[in-house]
Nucleic acid binder design. Structure first.
Lengths: 206, 206, 206, 206
DNA sequence: CATGAATGAGAATTCATTCAT
DNA sequence: AATGAATGAATTCTCATTCAT
């Protein structure tokens, strides 16, 4: 009788309990890592530092993630999932005015409520060496699927140059994100101004 | 006989020759470093890699720069100088329509012709650990001096909410930069579209 | 169930086991380092050499000491503790003849039984760059506290020039140490002669 | 006709002049090096630093000395020659009281007037890695030749244990040197006290 | 004789990762 | 599942020495 089976016999519900423990540990690690990666930078945050901050041993991390890069990857995927959840996945490929407004509002909301994720995401996005990592990620593919839908929307709405509108809208959103991130965490753009900005964009494309 | 000629006699390779060598080597190192930092990322580019790519020994870099960070710093300063040269430093604090148009065109031109620098600049800007390095840089101070001038311009032009216009313009420019950089070097936004985008922005604020 | 036992359950190798490992490894590293620093010189002994001699990897040293200098520092402190233990810390500031004799005998004993430490200590003491490291060490402070006590002893004993006696005694001890160390490890001053020397000094100041 | 012969023809007395230049340059380098080695430590003083302080180029040093170690070696030899010059080399192997007094006075004088040399000498002497360098030096051989002469002196003078006297005198001198060096350059032992100390030693062995 | 650019071996140190327990 | 000791490759940086001019 192996040590393993002994443990098994002693705790019949251990299977589910283990699952729960695993999941909570994973969250704990990922939350700490997101915070540290964003504030210290992915490269400058060592596994030691991470383990210490998360209150676990260095070895344990490798029990949950195959490597530091795998951890990053999961964090990014996780953050994206959270972001994507904000968007209606049910649309049929044809965008209405209401759906566009909702989309824009969600984008702004996402940026404002997930700053830590965005800082990490963008800082990683601009580290050329790691870029490849993200190229295959869902968000990018999602956004790429979204652009023709948007372009189509502008065409249907009778905009003279749909592509130009698409570029402008993209730039406005990206630019807003960049401004927010760059300001984070020291400066702050007033909430009221952000609201106006949001409304203006919606007004431009309704 | 001047002191200079004495020195000359003492050193078979003259002062000027050494200066020429130093200057050209420095350029060679900085050019290689800019390229590599931008394409591989500052952190992922080691001195070994840099030396190999530049065709010099590892030690030589330290003959010209005190540290890797000092090298980065000089590259950034250098790039900024080049960028700032694009802008007219002679304006008196009051912006005319023509000056604004000129400014916007120069910004776009700068982004498009110095992509490598911008990729590096932005990637560094978003690396939390190195951010402090740039906070004291000229470009940021320059841009910060520019924002009130722009806001004032919008006020004089009778725009309803000058701050909102300022934010919008900033977002459009930053967003365009981000799009360009993100696309670099694999994708390309068509030149024609960029031209239209530029003209639209100018049209918006004239 | 105490917190301790919880921790125990969590780690198959118990807290105590780790402490034992750490302590023994630390000793192993410090012993090797003392030997090497004394025989090769602190500067000429590289971490590589040390690791090789101690039979560990280069990196492991940094698991136990923050830097090479920290290692040196701990060795010095350790040696001093050992040396200071030889002296009676209970004296009340007033020295008797017996205490002086005991002190001198202990000094000589310390020098003779801790040669490796003394060689390192003195060699470091005379390396200008590292001197500051030792200025704050206990031994020096201890000795500095001792000099007025000795001077006072000579005054009470009716010596004509207590300061001169103090200087002479110090010189005799330092000189003996220097001779021993310089001779180490190739030459040897005969034990019998050392004994006579010791007795003579004691005789001079009783 | 080679470039060399041209120069030769142009300056007929260049041979002697070169000698003078060489000699003065060498002195300049050695003086700077002695000062720096003593104050910064041999290991921590780089050729760059030395060249800068001496106002010459790095390469030039190698024109006069084959290596950094050769430079050290020459400095040591040079300092020893200076020290040895203080002693009467003419004695016939039999020491008189007057000669001993003169010897001791010279030793003390040497220590006090050549502190920089002694600091370097001792610091090098105690760096085990470099010790071998000095083992073959003249001063040590000289001193080794001197010990039997001293022992013989004490025997002839009727001292009970000549070897013990020899050891005591050596310890007193070495100890005084160590005290001086250790105090250098921050503390100072009062000149008057040194004088008394000197006289006491002379008194002890006359 | 004199220069300083250039080299490359080697230094201290960091850190992702492995593994015995 | 959990620990942290151990590894070793890679990193930044230093410096004695060489060499073309």
């Amino acid at each position: 009788m192996t040590k393993r089976s002994v443990i098994k016999n002693m705790s019949p519900r251990s299977q589910e309990q283990f699952e729960v423990i695993r999941e909570s540990r994973k969250r704990q690690i990922m939350d700490t890592a997101l915070r540290l990666f964003a504030s210290e930078g992915y490269d400058h945050c060592s596994i030691s530092m991470l383990a210490e901050q998360a209150g676990i041993s260095k070895g344990l991390m490798y029990n949950y993630f195959n490597s530091k890069e795998a951890l990053l990857s999961e964090i990014i995927e996780d953050g994206m999932r959270e972001v994507l959840d904000l968007f209606d996945p049910n649309h049929d490929g044809v965008l209405t005015s209401e759906e566009l407004e909702s989309f824009i509002r969600r984008v702004f909301s996402a940026i404002r409520t997930n700053m830590e994720f965005w800082v990490l995401y963008i800082s990683v996005l601009f580290q050329p060496g790691v870029r490849e990592l993200l190229k295959e990620q869902q968000l990018i593919r999602y956004l790429e699927r979204f652009t023709p839908i948007l372009t189509d929307y502008f065409r249907r709405k009778g905009f003279e140059d749909p592509e130009l509108e698409m570029l402008t809208l993209s730039a406005l959103i990206e630019g807003f994100g960049a401004l927010m991130i760059y300001a984070y965490p020291s400066m702050k753009i007033p909430d009221e101004l952000i609201g106006k900005f949001e409304n203006r964009i919606i007004g431009m494309y309704k």
